[in-house]
Deep mutational scan, measured.
Amino acid sequence: AVSDRLIGRKGVVMEAISPQNSGLVKVDGETWRATSGTVLDVGEEVSVKAIEGVKLVVEKLE
């Protein structure tokens, strides 16, 4: 699937994400809805860990 190529890629949070609410991330110039187990603020760099349906699962870049 086209989304599989995104796993491991870096992105930037465009709309804040929390465990309760999905947000938006931009990866390779495309905007995706994303979820995370932690709070991520706009502008934070993330990496794509998995894909669930049409949402990316991301975590903060260390």
Rank of each mutant, 00 (worst) to 15 (best):
E45F: 10
V48Y: 00
G37C: 07
V57Q: 06
A50K: 10
E62V: 13
L61W: 10
K55L: 15
W32I: 05
S36D: 01
A1I: 13
A1V: 14
V27E: 00
G53S: 05
V39M: 15
E30K: 04
G43I: 02
A1C: 10
V25G: 01
M14Y: 08
I51D: 02
L6T: 03
K60N: 04
D41A: 12
G29D: 15
D28Y: 06
T31K: 13
G11W: 00
V25E: 00
V58L: 03
I17N: 02
P19T: 05
T38L: 11
I7F: 04
K26M: 14
V42G: 04
V57H: 10
A50L: 05
K26G: 10
D28G: 06
N21T: 14
G11N: 00
L61Q: 08
K26P: 00
D28F: 06
I7K: 05
R5C: 11
K49V: 14
V39W: 10
G43K: 13
V54H: 06
P19N: 07
L61D: 09
K26A: 13
L6G: 02
S18H: 12
M14H: 07
L6H: 04
E45I: 12
G8A: 03
T38E: 12
K26H: 12
A50W: 07
E52N: 08
P19F: 08
E30Q: 05
S47I: 14
K55Y: 15
L56H: 01
G23K: 00
V58G: 01
V27W: 02
R5M: 11
K10H: 14
V12N: 08
L24S: 14
M14E: 09
V48A: 02
K26S: 12
A50R: 08
S3M: 08
V54Y: 09
S22W: 09
E30C: 05
L40S: 03
V2R: 04
S3Y: 03
E62M: 08
W32H: 12
L6N: 03
T38G: 14
V2S: 12
K26Q: 12
R33P: 15
D41T: 13
A1E: 15
V57G: 02
V13F: 00
E62T: 14
G43M: 12
K49H: 10
G8K: 04
S22H: 11
V57S: 05
A16I: 11
S22L: 10
Q20N: 13
K49Y: 06
R5W: 15
K26N: 13
R5N: 15
G11M: 02
G23A: 02
Q20T: 14
E59Q: 10
I7H: 03
V57N: 04
G53T: 04
L6M: 08
E15M: 09
G29F: 12
E62I: 15
L40Y: 03
R9H: 11
T31F: 14
V25C: 05
G29S: 10
S47R: 15
K55I: 15
G11I: 01
